[in-house]
């Protein structure tokens, strides 16, 4: 079980995260939804400390990370346990697809090149990119780049996968392939947190849904609880608006 405890973050006077706490069971797929600018991405970035939280603890079974006092070793340990997939893919542009996936294995985990290559190819096969090993990121479509980024994150065998709006930078046609990939990974039993605006995807895949607004968790529950029977007025409003926007697209 992973415990997130009381994460707080302000940018100058702007309070972005105001004490976020929740638990993650092994195998959970937690979806975070909410309007733009409520700190969903910042929360993910604080969990693996890419953005340093002002306060807060991320606790694994055998490891505790306190954002206020930690050593460089702790930071590396935290990041080895978590992997992140970014909205803008952020593949290493000077490295081929294969080397992108191998990078973390050889440099951070110090695995031999031969072994790393085997792992990388296995992960690339899972996202159906094994035939693009020697391509550079700029030779790939957005959806392909994101799948490689997912393989790169998966190769590290993290305890917790973080998806930061993985489909928001893709055109609608490519969203499907990336969501399918994430769905497959979820089915394998990986623990993950997904920030997403794809409501139907969230509904089908998430085991737990968190609705956030203004840096606070407004409502938390199973997908059916949140989507079919939301308790909070604000959650209801948000879902109604979203369904209104999404419905015409799906009726085509």
């Amino acid at each position: 079980m992973i415990k997130i405890r009381d994460i707080k973050k302000s940018f100058f006077t702007n309070k972005v995260l105001d004490g976020i706490s929740f638990d993650i069971e092994a195998g959970d797929v937690i979806a975070i939804i909410g309007p733009s600018g409520t700190g969903k991405s910042t929360l993910l970035r604080c969990i693996n400390s890419i953005t340093k939280a002002d306060e807060g603890i991320v606790e694994f079974d055998d490891f505790k990370f306190d954002s206020q006092k930690h050593t460089k070793k702790d930071l590396t340990a935290l990041r080895k346990r978590t992997s992140m997939v970014f909205q803008q893919f952020n593949l290493f542009s000077k490295k081929t697809v294969l080397k992108n996936v191998m990078e973390g294995l050889t440099v951070v985990k110090k695995i031999s090149k031969k072994e790393a290559k085997e792992i990388a190819i296995k992960e690339l096969e899972k996202v159906h990119m094994e035939d693009r090993q020697v391509y550079y990121p700029k030779h790939l479509s957005g959806g392909q780049q994101q799948r490689v980024a997912i393989a790169r994150a998966m190769a590290m065998q993290p305890e917790l996968l973080l998806f930061d709006e993985p489909t928001s930078a893709l055109d609608p046609e490519l969203v499907g392939e990336v969501l399918d990939t994430i769905r497959d990974i979820a089915k394998e039993g990986n623990t993950m947190i997904v920030v997403s605006h794809e409501m139907s995807f969230v509904r089908n895949v998430a085991t737990k849904v968190i609705f956030m607004e203004n840096g606070k968790i407004v409502e938390m529950g199973s997908a059916s609880q949140i989507f079919d029977n939301p308790q909070n007025e604000r959650t209801k409003e948000f879902l109604i608006k979203n369904r209104v926007f999404i419905q015409p697209e799906y009726s085509i």
Binding site: N48, I50, R79, S83, M84, F86, N90, E103, G104, V107
Partner: peptide, 8 residues
């Protein structure tokens, strides 16, 4: 950032 997230 991606490199940092990998633990480099």
């Amino acid at each position: 950032e991606a490199a940092a997230a990998l633990g480099m």
